[in-house]
Design a protein around this nucleic acid. Structure first.
Lengths: 224, 224
DNA sequence: GGAACGCTTCGATGAGGATCAAACTATGCG
DNA sequence: CGCATAGTTTGATCCTCATCGAAGCGTTCC
């Protein structure tokens, strides 16, 4: 019988399938409306609304009202990190997946992880950046290499500005089981990929699909 | 309605207060028997047994049978990391703690976090090691400094041997909200603290209590 | 062997909570 | 205004699951 932070309360919020699906959907980084989340979770609107108010009360979500739309989003990177940690365990101990499926395939290649890129492409990118000494990795830790600043500046990304979040962080990829790049640099790179239209978000999914020329451009920029 | 790793299943395992208390107790790193865990969780033995079999089935625990004793322990660092992540969120969003209590105070000063030291002492130690350039920290990442190898070798800790786990890792301290040292180095330091009898484990708690001379020795070694 | 101990299984009970239909509130549009 | 859309609240139903007493199983010790 012990006290301390009430982890059971938080975990039980994530422990309902409907709410877990909602949180999973919000891992895409974009805020969604109650209707979209109801669809995503496969429950009726009233049910979804009830779940959302619980998640709000639990402090896991933020709410932005715009007219008659109410956009729900993850409360922050800490919450996203927790979801990733749980996902990692679920992946590790879960039953071997029976049939990957096509959509799952796309998710493995590239997907959004809160605000940065994840999946095989992201892991390959980090590998290459380390290989070229632009980033330095010791085991699971990542830092900027000497040429990082100029290298990223050339493509319009400023790594000098340091907000409260770390510039680069390792994030364990649940599909590949190796690290990819998170942090503000990871977020900036995803921004560039999307704004340059190298890839687009799959609708209602975290999957990121590269166009053929976009894939070439991406590889030239980060895997070349 | 999406598939992927079943995070709701894992989260709901942690989402029950009795199970959460058990997992919390196991964060001390030592394996415990069913009776001890029942006591810890404040439930009867049959109830505890039922919970334990669920946690086993979920892959969160390991079991070691020795005679008529059955020792339950966390399944690995990944599970421990997940618990820490959930604890962090719970601490962040949870209600302001009303009355810290004496035992809670000891926990804040120093405690075991799976296999390494956490709490104010641990945060101070990491700060000092970074200040002396024995370890290098960039934001949340930590790596060995040039003098690390000889410095730790002098106190009988070999940082050269690199098993699959990283040597140093940052672990966010839920009480101080700053990083402390995890990884094999963190584990080795905790080993030393306990084997040198600088401190002892509080019974039935994660708290670590330094003896007055032990505290001096610890500070000379790591904070000097 | 038999008594004590550690733990699990069985069975019955009860409470919490997930669900949806219907009613209600609020915003936007013409 | 009146209607449509977005969302929440209420109320009733149902089911899962946590709980513990009692009984069963395996181990140890005398």
């Amino acid at each position: 019988m012990r006290e301390g932070p009430d982890i059971a309360r938080i975990a039980s919020l994530v422990g309902d399938p409907a709410r877990a699906n909602m949180l999973n959907a919000l891992m895409g980084g974009t805020a969604l409306t109650a209707s979209e989340l109801a669809l995503e979770a496969g429950v009726s609107l009233p049910t979804a609304s009830s779940h959302l108010s619980k998640l709000m009360e639990g402090g896991l979500l933020t709410l932005a009202s715009q007219g008659r739309h109410r956009y729900y989003g993850l409360a922050g990177p800490q919450v996203a990190g927790m979801i990733e940690a749980i996902t990692g365990v679920a992946e590790a101990v879960g039953p071997k997946r029976v049939r990957p499926g096509p959509r799952d395939g796309a998710m493995r290649v590239a997907r959004v992880c809160y605000d940065h890129l994840a999946g095989e492409q992201a892991v390959a990118m980090l590998d290459r950046l380390v290989e070229k000494d632009i980033l330095l990795r010791d085991d699971k830790e990542i830092r900027l290499g000497p040429s990082a600043s100029s290298h990223f500046a050339a493509m319009g990304i400023d790594v000098g500005a340091r907000p409260r979040r770390p510039v680069c962080r390792a994030c364990l990829d649940w599909s590949v089981r190796r690290s990819h790049l998170a942090g503000t640099l990871g977020a900036a790179i995803l921004d560039k990929i999307l704004s340059e239209k190298w890839a687009r978000r799959e609708k209602n999914s975290r999957a990121v699909v590269f166009s053929p020329p976009g894939k070439q451009a991406f590889e030239r920029a980060f895997l070349g």
